[in-house]
């Protein structure tokens, strides 16, 4: 008994240490954001905080426009993604065929290709479809990019639901719509909502396509951060302030929903 408690204590410390290491860069970024440009590269923990960098960032770029684009893109792509992923996952979970497993693996394999490998064809397609520098173009790209993740996660959650319940409903005369709304939805909702959160975060953080496919009008917050990075000149404080502003909304959202997110993500794993 004594020994096992001690073991847990050590594990706890380890977990805290890992969390600290993971969190440290964000903490340091937040700290640097409130320093002056000259103090930004000193390792001091105590200093007189200033809002200069934030003022400069707001004066130099249109934060609101970028943030709104980020919101449209992450929510829009998540909705589009679910419209396609849920029917697919439903079919695969409840009416599997011998090929279902390999279809799933094939879908996942599309995530293994580096994005830059398809940059030129996608760029040309977007150009001829008029989707360059357009919110719709990015919504489409983010939805496609996240589709395998969405299908896989929804599939895992659907598999947790006993088939017999759905069959019972069908025996009682429930149609497809009825079955979806009254039986499947309440049971799958925790899983679906944590998937939605994950998809929103993934689209929010997507930088490769947003930097390459947008220029002025549809640029989200990732492009906003990129505009503060510079190989010639010291901009650490401003870069930190811009980054803090860019991650703040999603961090707050993650904080508020962390319980659901964690339970949803571990739902399938600890069967």
């Amino acid at each position: 008994m004594e020994a096992s408690r001690k073991k847990v204590g050590l594990l706890d410390i380890l977990a805290w240490l890992i969390a600290l290491v993971l969190f440290f860069p964000i903490f340091w970024m937040a700290l640097t954001a409130f320093k002056t440009e000259q103090g930004a590269y000193s390792p001091d923990l105590f200093f007189v905080p200033t809002l200069d960098s934030f003022r400069e960032v707001f004066a130099r770029s249109d934060y609101k426009a970028h943030a709104l684009n980020s919101i449209y893109i992450s929510f829009g792509s998540t909705i589009l993604c679910f419209l396609l992923a849920i029917p697919a996952a439903y079919r695969m979970a409840f009416f599997p065929t011998p090929k279902t497993r390999s279809t799933l693996v094939w879908m996942l394999s599309t995530k293994m290709m580096p994005s830059v490998g398809v940059l030129l064809p996608i760029y040309l397609l977007a150009k001829s479809a008029g989707l360059l520098d357009s919110i719709w173009g990015l919504i489409l790209i983010c939805a496609l990019m996240n589709l395998p993740v969405a299908v896989w996660m929804s599939y895992t959650y659907f598999c947790e639901i006993p088939k017999a319940i759905l069959e019972a409903a069908r025996v009682d005369g429930a149609g497809l719509f009825h079955e979806m709304r009254d039986i499947l939805a309440p049971m799958a909702l925790p899983g679906i909502s944590s998937t939605a959160l994950l998809l929103i975060i993934l689209s929010w953080n997507e930088s490769f396509w947003s930097i390459n496919l947008t220029s002025a009008k549809a640029a989200p917050l990732t492009v906003f951060i990129a505009s503060y990075s510079s190989p010639e000149g010291l901009f650490w404080a401003k870069l930190s302030a811009a980054s803090l502003l860019a991650v703040a909304p999603i961090m707050v959202m993650g904080w508020l929903t962390q319980k659901r997110l964690v339970s949803g993500l571990t739902f399938g794993a600890v069967k």
Partner: peptide, 22 residues
């Protein structure tokens, strides 16, 4: 559109070489 040097180089090359006119 202000970006970091290496990103700019890639971005501008793609735009100019495909004649996108962004």
């Amino acid at each position: 559109v202000i970006v970091e040097e290496n990103i700019l180089r890639g971005r501008v090359t793609t735009d100019i070489s495909t004649g996108s006119g962004q």
